[in-house]
Design a protein around this nucleic acid. Structure first.
Lengths: 246, 246
DNA sequence: AAACACGGTTGACTTGGATCAAGCTTACGC
DNA sequence: GCGTAAGCTTGATCCAAGTCAACCGTGTTT
């Protein structure tokens, strides 16, 4: 693992992490649990792990034993094929879960890489299954989270299968904006944590096309771009761009 | 519902359906259950539904209350956007589950349409959740099935995001072949249940491109095509096509 | 402060797949 | 058995995005 945080052998540290006083509990796994149930989840989610920018949370092929809830930071997941092609399958932010792909074969099938210094809570999967056999609400919510991931993937297929470059990028920006809003950040102004190349990989475009589309959006007054700093100036305009026919 | 089988008001018929003597149990939900557990699943999976070619199993927006196991037949799932664009999100065959997308919002988010006369087992979701709280193996297997769907979706993203037309089609054919094989059919000879347009929608291509690629594969001797009848003549050749660089 | 590297922008040119269009095949209804 | 429609094939042309290449901006290292 080349990019493991060097000079600090212990990247897996045991810290008191409690879902019950985590401000992400309304976005994350604990959603809908009673206080008593929350306490039981606390016992399970006791290991927190810090990652520096560029570190891998897990790699494709590695044995699966836990899913991870992002406490802070920003990640990408990607799949590589032998000839070097990369497909970014998603960008994840605080409150979202990572690692669901590993349940299927008991091995991870993609790489999860921190795009900024981040912190995650490890949730040992067998214990999550056993607790969700006891807590109905937890079980149901977990199923919803997995299903939501499937629905999200369908949206990406739609994007990749039917949209043109500028529609894809508009959809991407609006999606980010909406997710930042849900976390209490500005909907109109944010920093991109990923490069043009990573955006391109996610959207099925080359980095030059991403860059050109950003420039066009700026010329048209939809956004202001300065490198990774984005300000959205015209949400309805972007929405119209996404769906030029309707 | 325009295409509901007319002249036959009862498309939802109650028939004795038992997982315990279903020959798909090794592919489907029952995988890994003991005989006693299977009996309990039988109680739950009691409603079978027949669909004619073109019928919808469910539509986007409809309330979700059950997932469906395909007993026989062939389906597509698709998502439509307002301007009429269609994205086929998958083709499903016997032993596979339909409807997982609906768990997330309690409403279906795509359409499921039979591509040939088909039969499905309806599995009321609340009852599945309650049974899987009791049967460990069922719970775990269900999680694996959902996870497998996520992994499959990543594969489609890879295909749509990074592959060229002929690579996509080669991957598609090899995937079908492999799934037919797993069901005891010939790996080398089968009928496509979907049109060129549906294949194109799934692969992010126009029907003309699909048709031309089929023709090229035939010229090169990789396959023999006659409308919907496909014979695969050179599996290694197709595999090489899929990944020309490596 | 200079030098380097990485990421981003922009331009010129190419190309794979889309589009438009015509004709063919197969299946089905009358 | 004939007519029609739906689906498939093939050709000619076009264009959105890819490729190749030069240059710029910013941040980091020495």
């Amino acid at each position: 693992m080349p990019s493991e945080s060097s000079g600090n052998a212990i990247s897996l540290s045991i810290l008191k992490t409690a879902c019950s006083n985590c401000n992400l509990r309304e976005l994350c796994l604990p959603l809908g649990l009673t206080n008593d149930e929350l306490k039981r989840l606390d016992d399970l989610v006791s290991i927190r792990r810090r990652l520096k920018r560029g570190d891998r949370l897990y790699s494709s092929g590695a044995p699966f034993d836990a899913i991870y809830a992002i406490r802070s930071g920003f990640f990408k997941t990607d799949v590589l094929i032998e000839d070097g092609r990369e497909q970014v399958t998603g960008f994840q932010m605080a409150g979202e879960l990572l690692g669901l792909d590993g349940i299927s074969t008991e091995h991870h099938t993609c790489n999860a890489i921190a795009l900024e210094d981040s912190e995650v809570c490890a949730i040992p999967f067998p214990r999550l299954e056993s607790l969700s056999r006891e807590i109905h609400t937890l079980q149901h919510h977990f199923h919803k989270v997995m299903s939501r991931e499937i629905v999200r993937d369908h949206g990406v297929m739609m994007l990749l299968g039917t949209m043109r470059a500028e529609e894809r990028l508009a959809a991407f920006l609006l999606n980010l904006s909406q997710r930042f809003t849900a976390r209490g950040f500005s909907h109109a102004e944010f920093y991109l944590r990923m490069t043009r190349e990573e955006i391109g990989s996610y959207l099925g475009l080359k980095l030059e096309t991403v860059s050109r589309s950003f420039s066009r959006f700026q010329e048209e007054g939809y956004i202001a771009v300065q490198q990774k700093h984005i300000r959205i100036l015209n949400v309805p305009g972007l929405k119209a761009l996404m769906n030029p026919r309707a």
